[in-house]
């Protein structure tokens, strides 16, 4: 814990009397890129605001660099925050938006100029320096907001859904960009997202949140390959999750007798883990979708709908066909409550 740059202990966050985050513990190491992942409304933004000092925790402490900053005002914490809503200054042009914090630091004009220009360049907005935020697209505004925080060289940079408004290509570019900036500057980043693939692609560690509580923390591969709970599995692409009851799997529509017995609450299969074309059970194909290298099938079964996928090169089935399928124990994944 000595090398953790940000440490939240027993953090309790509430709006008036509504507790949003009941009890949060989190340690972030210096230079780490952390993804806060979770469904809408689970308290991600709230947590960010508390770290930044924009809301006081009900109880618990926040340490930065080992120092207790729980009561420190926001403008003294040296934390950058890229707002979900950008929060750009509408009366200032792009250059002045980025220069805002530098001017407050009373840097020399030449230094400000070079930093701002470099910042704008980093996010690819150098050509729009004199535009006002209102004259920029959503994605440009988001990048401007990022540049404004970056030039301050904060110890910790918080990003609230920094890529949500970008188109797919730009989003990939910006992912790379964020990683590059992070490598170059070594800044510790905590970014919020509810896109699991973004979290997987970018983060050193992922913090999965649910209703203000941490469901699981781990590296992307840990969360992807070894989700502990149904919620985590659901989030990371296990589309077929069934409860276990003795010798049977229980789904939405009914149950299915299986040959194995396991000591777990749930069994889960990714679409690719479902065997199609042979096996002991029957399912009717109600949907076929071509997804590049894979074909995805939706099967109507005794359990309800099952999503399966098989390589596009293999034999194809048509909607309406009844086929054999299997949910092998070996490729299933056991989950605990």
């Amino acid at each position: 814990m000595s090398n953790s740059i940000l440490s939240l202990k027993k953090l309790n966050l509430a709006y008036n009397k509504t507790v949003v985050v009941p009890d949060l513990d989190l340690d972030v190491r210096e230079g780490e890129l952390i993804a806060l992942l979770g469904p809408s409304g689970c308290g991600k933004t709230t947590t960010m605001r508390a770290i930044a000092g924009l809301m006081a925790p009900h109880s618990g402490t926040i340490h930065i660099d080992g120092k207790d900053v729980t009561r420190m005002p926001a403008n003294k914490r040296g934390i950058g925050l890229v707002f979900q809503s950008y929060a750009l200054f509408p009366h200032l042009n792009a250059f002045e938006n980025v220069a805002f914090g530098l001017r407050l630091k009373k840097l020399a004009e030449t230094e400000i100029k070079s930093k701002v220009e470099h910042g704008l360049q980093t996010v690819g907005l150098a050509h729009l320096a004199t535009r006002k935020p209102a004259e920029m697209s959503g994605g440009q505004q988001q990048r401007l907001s990022l540049a404004r925080s970056l030039v301050m060289e904060p110890k910790i940079l918080l990003l609230d859904e920094p890529l949500s408004n970008l188109d797919a290509r730009l989003r990939l570019d910006m992912r790379t960009e964020l990683q590059r900036v992070q490598r170059e500057t070594g800044v510790t980043m905590v970014f919020v997202t509810h896109d699991q693939s973004e979290a997987l692609a970018l983060a050193d560690r992922i913090v999965l949140m649910k209703d203000g509580l941490i469901e699981q923390i781990g590296t992307p591969s840990e969360l992807y390959n070894r989700p502990r709970t149904k919620f985590a599995a659901d989030f990371f692409g296990f589309e077929n999750i069934f409860k276990i009851s003795g010798n049977a799997l229980v789904g939405d529509a009914g149950s299915l007798q299986v040959s194995y017995q396991v000591d777990a609450e749930y069994l889960a299969w990714r679409p690719s883990a479902v065997t199609v074309g042979n096996g002991s059970y029957n399912g009717k194909i109600v949907g076929v979708a071509f997804a590049g290298e894979h074909i995805e099938y939706v099967l109507e079964t005794l359990l309800g709908q099952i999503t399966a996928s098989s390589p596009a090169a293999e034999r194809k089935f048509k909607v309406g066909e009844t086929i054999k399928f299997d949910l092998p124990l070996a490729s299933g994944f056991a989950l605990y409550p």
Partner: peptide, 27 residues
């Protein structure tokens, strides 16, 4: 006027009064 602008200004180092003068008043 969205209030997060003032928060952004504070995070960039403004005092509360400073944020009001630099960000709120002009807008």
């Amino acid at each position: 006027l969205r209030s997060d602008m003032e928060e952004a200004a504070v995070l960039l180092g403004c005092s509360r009064v400073g944020a009001f003068i630099r960000v709120v008043l002009p807008n």
